[in-house]
């Protein structure tokens, strides 16, 4: 497995979705290649950073309208 091939398999690897043979070659490559080790770390870090992003919001108008609709919705 080359570095160029490995970088395309990182998500499948992180998901545990590689077939056993490919996974073994992935791990063997990772063990001897600092560049790919860094790349995989950075993909993990990217996933963690994406998880830290504040979710976007609706426009204030839509948000206010929905809060009002929720407040006044007829309930038992």
């Amino acid at each position: 497995m080359t570095c160029a091939e490995l970088v395309e398999l990182v998500t499948a690897f992180l998901e545990g979705a590689l077939d056993p043979d490919t996974e073994r070659r992935f791990i063997e490559h990772l063990a001897i290649c600092d560049g790919c080790e860094t790349y995989v770390d950075q993909m993990r870090r990217t996933v963690a950073e994406v998880g830290q992003v504040e979710p976007e919001s609706l426009s204030d108008e839509t948000r206010d309208r929905l809060l009002e609709a929720f407040r006044t919705f007829p309930r038992e």
């Binding site: 979710p55 976007e56 919001s57 609706l58 948000r63 929905l66 809060l67 929720f70 919705f73 309930r75």
Partner: peptide, 21 residues
Amino acid sequence: RAGDEEMFACLLNGWSGSMVR
């Protein structure tokens, strides 16, 4: 169901980004 406004506001904050996308 009970009309808990604070909780609904939290849901709006949490889910609106994905919902809009």
